[in-house]
Nucleic acid binder design. Structure first.
Length: 103
DNA sequence: ATCGTGACGAACG
DNA sequence: CCGTTCGCCACGA
């Protein structure tokens, strides 16, 4: 199916390991600069199977922080996965866009 | 077709 | 840095 979700997943798959981007940035790359919220909605809808195909953990908010709400387990998992890729979180739980930002 | 919703974001105080 | 406010969007009930 060719919907917004699909494009989000495809674009997210282009994020190199060890790098991250924001929902808003991803929206811009998808030619929908104001659909940041929809991007988050799309990633939130990822099914168990797709979780292993799409690097969902490489998408965080514009402030450089994990943005998952509600599911603490999943949130901590995201941080762990990113740290395993070499991404570093500072004392404020945020990353340095100049070092790990993509594109 | 209408309406509520939420892994957003920029602007403020 | 932290919480709040308001605008925006695709999706599904």
């Amino acid at each position: 199916m060719n919907n917004f979700y699909q494009s989000v997943y495809e674009m997210a798959s282009k994020i190199p390991k060890g790098k991250v981007t924001s929902y808003g940035r991803l929206a811009v790359l998808l030619q929908s600069p104001r659909a940041a919220r929809a991007v988050g909605y799309a990633l939130n809808s990822l099914k168990k199977d797709d979780l292993q195909k799409v690097p969902w953990q490489r998408v965080i908010n514009s402030q450089g922080k994990i943005s998952i709400k509600g599911d603490h387990f999943r949130a901590s998992l995201q941080r762990r996965l990113l740290e395993e890729e070499g991404i570093v979180f500072d004392e404020n739980d945020s990353i340095d866009w100049d070092k790990f930002g993509w594109p």
